[in-house]
């Protein structure tokens, strides 16, 4: 089932240069879709469009639609706050709030009006378990979050995003600053999470794209060059440019 359908999306920077050119693709529910390619290809820009984070930058939608469960989220009438609850985001560098571990997870829910302690505790435990962090922090939930290691902080950010009970999780190079073990833990968590969520990932390397993807989309200079099942893209790509890139012989 398609969770998100992108139709003929074109974006421009303020100076008129093109950022994305006529991109059409579907994002399948309960799967990991990776957007990969060289820097400046438009993959992060596209990712940010999926929960309207580009509203804050100098990027303009020239044309096209992004349908989330059939509704165009680019419509000016869209409630952006509600959208971002449905479509959560995890960034390259973990941005933990200057609060306790628990506080990082309950902050958003409290802001949304949830006051019942039992509900909040439940959300803390559930989201930490989903992010594969529960066992490591269950005894120190009231410690400052900043005391966690980089890998733990990143999983805390993932948990924070999950505490909002989103439907889609966007991740922008979530393991670029992590060691192989922490990276492995985040990747393993994603493989579990996809059973319940739709995941869109911009990986920090081709290898990560290959490891994690159910579906993969190769972006080059604003163009969606090729899109398909991960195991096809990384063993038998149809486009010569995709092949050159995944083989590492670009340029």
């Amino acid at each position: 089932m398609n969770k998100i359908i992108i139709e003929h999306l074109s974006l421009q920077y303020a100076d008129g240069t093109e950022s994305l050119r006529d991109v059409s693709m579907s994002i399948v529910a309960n799967a990991i879709t990776v957007l990969f390619g060289p820097a400046g290809g438009g993959k992060s820009t596209l990712l940010r469009c999926l929960n309207r984070l580009n509203d804050l930058t100098e990027v303009r939608v020239a044309s096209g639609k992004i349908l989330l469960d059939g509704e165009n989220i680019l419509d000016p009438q869209t409630d952006v706050i509600a959208l971002r609850r449905r479509v959560g985001m995890v960034f390259a560098r973990p941005v933990v709030l200057p609060l306790t571990i628990r506080g990082n997870l309950t902050y958003g829910l409290e802001l949304a009006g949830e006051k019942r302690k039992s509900r909040l505790d439940e959300a803390v435990e559930h989201s930490l378990k989903l992010a594969a962090l529960w066992e490591e922090v269950r005894d120190r939930l009231d410690d400052p979050a900043i005391a966690l290691s980089g890998g733990q902080q990143q999983r805390l950010c993932l948990a924070r995003s999950l505490a909002q009970q989103p439907e889609v999780i966007l991740l922008d190079e979530p393991t670029s600053g992590l060691d192989p073990i922490s990276t492995g833990k985040v990747e393993a968590a994603l493989q579990e999470l996809k059973k319940e969520y739709t995941i869109v990932l911009v990986p920090h390397s081709v290898q990560q794209a290959a490891r994690t993807s159910d579906y993969a989309a190769f972006f080059l200079q604003g163009e969606l060059v090729e899109y398909g099942e991960g195991k096809e893209i990384f063993t038998n790509p149809k486009n010569k440019r995709t092949e050159d890139y995944v083989e590492g012989r670009f340029g």
Partner: peptide, 9 residues
């Protein structure tokens, strides 16, 4: 085997 070598390094 080829898929696993390519995707799982």
């Amino acid at each position: 085997v080829m898929i696993l070598i390519a995707t799982q390094q």
